[in-house]
Design a protein around this nucleic acid. Structure first.
Length: 869
RNA sequence: GCGGACGUGGCGGAACCGGUAGACGCACGAGACUUAAAAUCUUGCGGCCGCAAGGCCGUGCGGGUUCGAGUCCCGCCGUCCGCACCA
């Protein structure tokens, strides 16, 4: 018998051990990756953080997952690249500058320094020699270079676009930063402004970005679907509706001026053309402007539309409103048929052609509009099996397919046939062409901000926008900067702004817009492959060897923006020769959040978890304030947030329990794609397990049994090994944890029985290697205690012995009429006949059968026996 | 409105292809050790009936397919997420 009494060994001291092993890894440069290493590569990457100043539990979970994969793949013999960097440009630095009178650069680098320390305390196996910060000129210099290359290839354009403009802060706001029509910081009513903006032509790749999604088979289906919907491909027809030049001044003038002879309409339902009742254009359509020039009422209507245009809530409740221009157009399939032209608030200038034909019977919006303005409707698609004469539309449009009715030469056709017939006829007449339309729009990258990557352009009176010569890059941000006044300080920095034109030498001025920070994060993964390069963003051979990232891990909130931009950027880099691949991330995993209970005191104030004490009374868990002892209400479990004070600081957890405990806890219990509930009890459970592993490893060394129980223990160890391996590959960390617990329990049981020292230490060794990717410090301490050479972090992954994974005998459940009544134990390779015989020989079975033979016997080898009586 | 995911003990969850529902952990109960507490260990833990052996019920609800359904099919209910006037 072996004692596992606590007195036999000191408690494991994480506070002492963790820094010691971190130093040992760093000293041996274990995680620094050699590009020349010839072994198969594996690139694992977690989405790099914004340097806010402190890491949070979400980071801990994200980086713990990536580290498990990195350490495991390293043990499996891969040349692993696992780098870390900082998404360091962005608004918070400017806000800090305004509020605290600090320099954004100093603030950012101080934050990076403290967060780096925090990440290092987690014991992550990162290659810190490749660390990058996007605000470093050595990084953004190359981004500017690529911007110019993209410009050269026609992948960048400059044009006017509508933006959200905050008149108080003097800046463009992203849609997310507009709350109820007001700027989130200033509270000022946001205006729609036409500004000249730089765009990346992501729409050039719309088709490819869509079709290539099918090849991303290691991406979550959900993310692929979200991107698919975002790109939003549809097939339809662009149809010209000729304006009728009647006696009315406006139309006559328009036709005479040649401004508009016809209105181009995009439709995915040309089959319903005979159901048309009107035509509608957007408030921003050139036709609307032309008519409004002589019509103050329409002008007023257009302005009304612009006001309600932005606010999200307004759209939900917005009534369909229109303004009759008095103009008419000819129906493309019948020149004698005229349709009225409206300006309507539900037509978007940004999609299609900014004009639609209204078919009220088969489109709900058109029907609402038609019903409001008394334009009537004619059903032209009849559901199969319905009487066409009796098929009427009143308040609900019929949008499904069916048989054509009231449609002249289309009558009797299916929806698809009618689509084709109309398309062919109108194409032949030259008034329509087939068009594939995307919802995706070009990516506006201009930001009127200081703390971002300067756009390397100089504006010259005579030469226009001139690229900064590559030799002059980077265009550095000025260090001395003042935020005393609202707006972009770059615009006020005359010394920085006024430069000679690179082409003609005349006085010119720099572009003062900086790039959207999503540009920075669109290629950092490529930069990690050779971050030391000074004269190029990438090295072709190197970047092509490392990419795509084999496993990318991050939050679902980036499902569209970041992940779509990066896919675009990779293609643009391919076009400009900076990489040879199209897809940046072969495998993607989106992890869940860390959530926590919320607490409120009697006054309704949020109480942080650190000030809570629990007790159980009459089986019910209750919370009290530590100091006042006053009862505190336990509220719903929510995402950790400062406003609800349900935040647990990783630093505190690492200080009191150690990094391994924190890592183990965030990986256990919940499946990684789901939210994990942080709880004090849960952390303590994890901390208990840390001590248990330490005790077991030490106890295993002292085992003295004769080996009678060795086989059972060895089987348990090798089975756990095989199972954990499989589950790490599939990123099912919660199941890994469960298998490891099972092995620990088996080892504990084994040590109470007759296990030999050899078997006990073998099992303990496997246990240590299984925990190593998750709790690397504890693993090193145990590795040393077991007397193994070198570091656990360098040890190759053990091989599971196939012979130990299968049993000689198996026990099958015996069902009678589908209900379990007995067990039967047979040799592993027993055939169906032998299993049947063994089953029928069972006493319980015979009793139930009462001598009669069963009506049917189902034997599923290795699974189950079912008798039907 | 459209699209998607999910619903299993007190809780987080497990159950590969339809084959013993509830692995593993947390919480809780009983016990051992201790002056005591902590730590540790043993043990119980879906519900109902029963001293027990055992039986019956049970994976949101209602049907169905099957020797057998948490898993497949049909119809509901609920929760969460994404998009949202996209012609």
């Amino acid at each position: 018998m072996t004692s596992t009494a606590p007195s036999a060994v000191e408690r494991y001291n994480a506070k002492d051990a963790e820094p010691r092993w971190q130093a040992a890894w760093a000293e041996q440069r274990l995680f620094e990756t050699d590009n020349a290493d010839g072994r198969p590569k594996y690139y694992v990457l977690e989405m790099f953080p914004y340097p806010s100043g402190r890491i949070h539990m979400g980071h801990v979970r994200n980086y713990a997952m990536g580290d498990v994969v990195a350490r495991y793949k390293r043990a499996r013999g891969f040349n692993v690249l696992h780098p870390m960097g900082w998404d360091a440009f962005g608004l918070p630095a400017e806000n800090a500058a305004m509020e605290r009178k600090v320099n954004p650069r100093d603030w950012t680098y101080a934050n990076i320094a403290s967060m780096r320390d925090q990440l290092k305390a987690m014991g992550l196996s990162l290659d810190w020699s490749r660390e990058i910060a996007t605000c470093d000129p050595d990084y953004y210099k190359h981004q500017q270079r690529m911007f110019l290359d993209f410009l050269d290839k026609g992948l960048v354009t400059r044009r006017t676009a509508k933006v959200n403009w905050d008149p108080v802060d003097h800046t463009v706001l992203a849609n997310e930063q507009v709350i109820d029509g007001r700027g989130w910081r200033s509270g000022a009513l946001v205006e729609q402004r036409e500004l000249t903006q730089w765009f990346f032509k992501i729409t050039d790749f719309a088709e490819d970005l869509l079709t290539a999604l099918d090849g991303l088979d290691r991406w979550p289906e959900k993310v692929r679907l979200m991107q698919k919907n975002w790109i939003g491909r549809s097939e339809g027809l662009e149809v010209l509706f000729a304006l009728v030049p009647d006696a009315r001044a406006a139309a006559a003038q328009l036709a005479a001026d040649g401004i508009l002879r016809d209105i181009k309409v995009y439709t995915t339902r040309p089959d319903t053309l005979f159901g048309a009742r009107f035509l509608a254009v957007a408030a921003d359509h050139p036709l609307a402007a032309a008519v409004a020039a002589t019509n103050p009422d329409l002008q007023a209507f257009i302005e009304e539309c612009r006001r309600t245009g932005t606010a999200q809530a307004a759209i939900d409740t917005a009534e369909k409103l229109g303004f009759d221009t008095g103009l008419t157009v000819r129906h493309p399939l019948d020149p004698a048929w005229e349709l009225p032209v409206y300006v309507a608030n539900f037509v978007l200038m940004e999609y299609g052609t900014g004009a639609v034909f209204g078919c009220p019977a088969h489109d709900q919006r058109d029907l609402d509009f038609s019903n409001k303005y008394g334009l009537g409707n004619v059903p032209v698609v009849c559901p199969e099996g319905q009487d066409p004469e009796a098929f009427l539309i009143t308040t609900t449009a019929y949008v499904e397919d069916g048989r054509m009715i009231h449609s002249r030469f289309l009558d009797g056709m299916t929806t698809d046939e009618a689509f084709e017939a109309v398309a062919r006829r109108l194409e032949a007449e030259g008034v329509a062409k087939r068009k594939v339309q995307f919802r995706l729009r070009d990516w506006g990258v201009s930001r009127q901000r200081y703390w971002g990557c300067p756009i390397p352009i100089i504006h010259c009176e005579s030469c226009g926008p001139v690229p900064v010569p590559v030799a002059d890059l980077p265009v550095r941000l000025p260090d001395e900067v003042s935020f005393d006044q609202p707006g972009n300080p770059l615009e006020r920095d005359q010394a920085w702004r006024n430069v000679p034109c690179p082409q003609c030498g005349a006085p010119a001025r720099r572009e003062t817009d900086t790039m959207d920070t999503f540009v920075d994060s669109s290629w950092y993964y490529a930069r990690f492959t050779a971050p030391w390069l000074t004269d190029a963003p990438t090295d072709r051979a190197t970047v092509d060897r490392w990419l795509a990232v084999d496993q990318y891990i991050g939050g679902i909130e980036h499902a569209i923006l970041h992940l779509l931009y990066a896919r675009f950027f990779m293609r643009a880099m391919r076009e400009t020769g900076w990489a040879g691949v199209s897809e940046p991330f072969a495998g993607l995993f989106t992890q869940g959040m860390v959530v926590h209970e919320t607490y409120k005191d009697a006054a309704g104030a949020w109480v942080p978890p650190a000030e809570i004490r629990f007790s159980t009374e009459e089986g019910e868990r209750r919370a009290f304030h530590v100091k006042t002892q006053a009862p505190v209400a336990i509220g719903p479990i929510e995402k950790m947030s400062k406003s609800k004070k349900n935040v647990v600081d990783p630093d505190d957890i690492i200080a009191s329990y150690g990094a391994d405990t924190a890592r183990w806890f965030v990986l256990s219990d919940s499946p990684p794609e789901r939210d994990v509930i942080w709880s004090e009890e849960g952390v303590q459970g994890a901390a208990r397990f840390v001590q248990k592993v330490w005790r077991l490893v030490n106890a295993a060394q002292a085992a003295t049994g004769d080996g009678a129980a060795d086989l059972a223990l060895r089987k348990a160890a090798h089975r756990a090994l095989a199972a954990v391996q499989d589950d790490i590959e599939r990123l099912r960390f919660n199941r890994c944890v469960a298998h490891i617990y099972t092995l620990a329990n088996a080892l504990e049981d084994g040590l109470r029985g007759p296990v030999s020292r050899a078997a006990a230490t073998e099992a303990a060794g496997i246990l240590v290697q299984l925990i190593a990717p998750m709790m690397p410090h504890l693993a090193e301490e145990c590795w040393t205690a077991l007397g193994r050479p070198g570091l656990a972090a360098q040890a190759p992954w053990p091989e599971a012995e196939a012979g130990l994974l299968v049993e000689d005998e198996i026990t099958l459940p015996v069902q009678i009429n589908g209900k379990k009544r007995a067990d039967v134990t047979v040799p592993r390779d027993a055939d169906a006949k032998a299993v049947e015989a063994a089953t029928l020989a069972l006493e319980t079975v015979q009793k139930i059968l009462e001598g009669k033979p069963p009506r049917k016997v189902i034997v599923v080898p290795g699974r189950i026996v079912n008798l039907v009586v």
